[in-house]
Amino acid sequence: MLLEWILGFVFLIVKLTIVLIILLTVAAYLVWVERKLLGRIQARYGPNRAGEFGLLQPLADLVKLITKEDTVPQEANKGIFLLAPGVVGLMALLIFAVVPFGSGVTLWGRSIPLVITDLNVGLLFILALSSISVYGIALGGWASNSKYSLLGGIRGAAQMISYEVPMGLSLVPVVMLARSFSLVEITNAQSARPFIFVQPVSFILFLIAALAEIKRIPFDLPEAENELGAGYHTEYSGMRFGLFFLGEYITMIILGSLIAVFFLGGWHGPLLPPIIWFLLKVGIIVFTLIWFRATFPRIRYDQLMNTGWKVLIPIALLNIVVTGALVLGTS
């Protein structure tokens, strides 16, 4: 019994380590992918000097950032200033704990689910954590004691809180269809057909809201460089800035994973092994996000707020009502 428990624990630790390493590496390489892709879209090459095809570029950037001086502005609120980047990075990593990336494998007679933990309130856990990461942005911006950071921080807080609502609401129909908050259950509910075909409106709502949640173009207002220099992270240097940076790319992967899980049927798919399907779907979403970045201008603060409260939320509510009626009617 005890042995069983210890063994389970060891498996968990090993799984955690593997997932963490892979996630961080993928996030680092996502930076490379984005730089290469942007380059290609913009008719140029992108990094190609550091290693073959610039493949060592993430390493160069990482070492550079770590060995760079870590400055704290004199007037900053030091404790919070130092803590904020950690919050962003940590929350992003924690979300991944409930994301299932495969159907499970059997190793030495043990069935190992390919998810760190299958919480039965997984979806709520995700929403909760993404709320907490608002603190990283808002406090980071506030604690810097710089006007640009402050504006970025306020924009970030307002934007993320506003878009949490439509994001949550857009997922309600998914929960209604899957009849569960567990991400594994939601994935399994889509074994026949992905929810994107059943709930296209939810999909679009979620995509928009989540884009705003992870602050990417056209919703990158908190760090809108043309207006705010560098926004909430203006005063951060070195690896602390790197954490914000890395956090952004981890959240990109998470957004890709969540869309894959909620709407694209997770690891389900014909012919190819489940994990490949999952990665493929995440990849497509991430590619789309980069493509967005290369294409769209940025929307304005008031337009952002109007879109959130006056367009997305009403549609999301309507969608819930319609879905509810249909679910009741068919059952």
Binding site: Y45, G46, P47, T71, A230, H233, T234, E235, Y236
Partner: peptide, 15 residues
């Protein structure tokens, strides 16, 4: 200039 990894223009001198 991106080829040399130097295209990351920063708006903030800190970075």
């Amino acid at each position: 200039l991106a080829r040399f990894g130097a295209e990351v223009l920063r708006g903030s001198p800190r970075q």
